[in-house]
Simulated scan of single mutants.
Amino acid sequence: MTASRTPTGPAAAVRALALAVCLAVTALATGCRDDTAPAWDHPRLAATLNALSTALAQGCATPDPAHCADRLDRLDTLARRAFTEVLDHRLLDQACLDAESDVRRARTLRLAATTTARSPAPDRSPDRSPDRSPQDPRRLALARAVAAEQAAYRRLLAALEKVRTTPPPGAATGPA
């Protein structure tokens, strides 16, 4: 007689049970889902927020706060576009308004710090270049203002992303 290639007995039963459990867990974890984005996901707003996030991450590749300040000026256009899209979709909530106010305040402070940092020191004559030392108090104030504006943009981005991904009341959010 030849030996059978299919295992029998308790070992085969345990393997079959383990495979069945793995398949059941996988099916429950993934669900029967539709891979298309829901109608309330706002893909155009998602693209704008992605661009804003990328620009914010790449904005300060160098430690120079003046360079970062110039890059933050470019973020304002993307932030305004995202905020306008949120208004268009009527997604606005108090967290978005607070984050937008924080960005405006931080921007105003950063613009003032930028002007101060670029002006000559009071004890220097106007024909001499301003102090470019990293320990210059005006540059430190600019660095703090830039960091505060970046943090405000991150809070705005998080608030906008939250309202974008929150389903409207009564929307079907479970797997199909």
Rank of each mutant, 00 (worst) to 15 (best):
V14C: 04
A13C: 06
L45H: 01
V21T: 10
C32H: 15
C22T: 12
A39S: 12
A18R: 03
V25M: 06
C32G: 15
R33P: 12
W40N: 07
T36K: 13
L28I: 12
A13Q: 13
T26F: 06
V25F: 02
T48H: 02
P43N: 08
A27M: 11
T26H: 10
A16E: 09
A12Q: 04
A20T: 12
A11M: 04
R44D: 03
P10D: 02
T8C: 00
A20R: 10
A18I: 04
A16M: 05
H42E: 09
A11R: 13
A12P: 03
D34P: 15
C22W: 09
L45M: 03
A47D: 05
T26G: 09
A27W: 13
H42S: 08
A39M: 10
T26E: 12
L19K: 08
T48S: 02
T36C: 06
V21K: 07
A39F: 04
R15G: 01
L17W: 05
R44Q: 07
A16L: 03
A46E: 02
D34M: 14
A47H: 09
D35T: 13
R33H: 15
A24F: 08
A47F: 02
T8I: 01
D34W: 05
V25L: 06
A13K: 11
T8L: 00
P7N: 01
L45R: 01
A46Q: 08
T8H: 02
R33S: 11
G31K: 14
V14H: 04
P43A: 06
A24S: 13
A13R: 13
R15S: 02
P43V: 07
D34A: 07
A13M: 07
G9K: 04
T30G: 14
